[in-house]
Computed example of a mutant assay.
Amino acid sequence: MMQLTLYTTLGCHLCERLEVLLDLLHDGEYFLKKVEISEDEVLMARYGVRIPVLVDTADDELDMGFEPQRLADWLSERGALDAEAWRRLQEGRDDLREEERKERKAPACRPAGRRYLA
């Protein structure tokens, strides 16, 4: 099982898009650890303008993984790309917008101390 870390923040629509793409394109099982950057000044300085950032166990980072080609290439390099799903997505047979519309339950209010990045 592949272990991945996603540096993210509450309300990040690009992070949500990356998660949808990852679900669609990853071949096999994976564990995704989400790290909230807004609660840590060091993480804010490192990732604040770069999120979402996907990281593997070798600490290889992927910026802009919400772009399908970038994510597909990154997964392929790790032997984790579902080639059939990627082909279908490229041919337009999988409607990514429909996938993005799946309900992702976000908290109705922000927990104390969290902030949105804008």
Results as ranks from 00 to 15, higher is better:
27 D>A: 15
1 M>E: 11
10 L>R: 05
3 Q>T: 14
110 R>P: 06
14 L>I: 10
52 P>G: 07
75 L>C: 01
90 Q>C: 10
86 W>V: 02
59 D>L: 08
78 R>C: 07
84 E>S: 08
51 I>Y: 08
38 S>I: 04
37 I>M: 05
81 L>D: 04
21 L>E: 00
42 V>C: 12
14 L>T: 04
24 L>F: 03
30 Y>F: 14
47 Y>M: 13
117 L>I: 09
40 D>Y: 09
73 D>N: 12
53 V>T: 01
57 T>G: 07
44 M>P: 04
90 Q>V: 13
74 W>P: 05
46 R>M: 15
11 G>A: 10
41 E>A: 15
86 W>C: 03
65 G>R: 01
58 A>L: 13
36 E>P: 02
57 T>R: 10
12 C>N: 04
79 G>W: 08
37 I>G: 00
68 P>D: 07
52 P>F: 10
116 Y>F: 15
18 L>T: 00
73 D>H: 11
82 D>A: 03
17 R>G: 01
10 L>M: 06
106 A>D: 14
81 L>Q: 03
78 R>H: 06
7 Y>Q: 03
81 L>W: 08
4 L>K: 02
98 E>P: 02
40 D>P: 04
80 A>S: 13
75 L>R: 01
71 L>G: 03
70 R>E: 11
39 E>Y: 06
83 A>C: 07
91 E>W: 08
49 V>P: 01
89 L>D: 00
107 P>V: 13
32 L>Q: 00
31 F>T: 11
55 V>T: 10
103 E>R: 13
1 M>I: 10
92 G>V: 04
54 L>E: 03
77 E>F: 07
47 Y>R: 00
88 R>D: 05
66 F>D: 02
9 T>A: 15
23 D>H: 07
66 F>Y: 15
32 L>S: 01
16 E>D: 11
49 V>D: 09
82 D>T: 07
40 D>V: 01
112 A>L: 12
68 P>K: 09
54 L>F: 04
51 I>V: 06
98 E>N: 08
34 K>E: 15
4 L>P: 00
87 R>Q: 14
51 I>A: 00
107 P>N: 11
69 Q>Y: 11
108 A>F: 14
36 E>Y: 11
90 Q>M: 05
4 L>F: 10
3 Q>E: 15
66 F>P: 01
67 E>G: 03
59 D>A: 12
24 L>Q: 06
96 L>G: 08
104 R>W: 13
55 V>F: 03
71 L>E: 01
59 D>V: 02
38 S>F: 03
84 E>T: 13
87 R>I: 03
56 D>T: 04
23 D>Q: 11
36 E>N: 09
15 C>M: 05
99 E>A: 14
29 E>I: 08
90 Q>T: 15
31 F>H: 14
6 L>R: 03
16 E>K: 11
38 S>K: 10
20 V>Q: 02
89 L>Y: 02
53 V>A: 00
96 L>F: 06
93 R>Q: 14
97 R>T: 07
115 R>S: 13
14 L>R: 07
81 L>T: 06
110 R>T: 11
51 I>Q: 00
74 W>N: 01
83 A>V: 13
96 L>A: 09
56 D>P: 05
32 L>I: 10
65 G>P: 04
16 E>R: 04
45 A>Q: 14
69 Q>I: 12
30 Y>A: 05
18 L>V: 06
117 L>F: 14
49 V>Y: 06
43 L>S: 07
14 L>A: 10
28 G>N: 05
90 Q>P: 02
21 L>R: 00
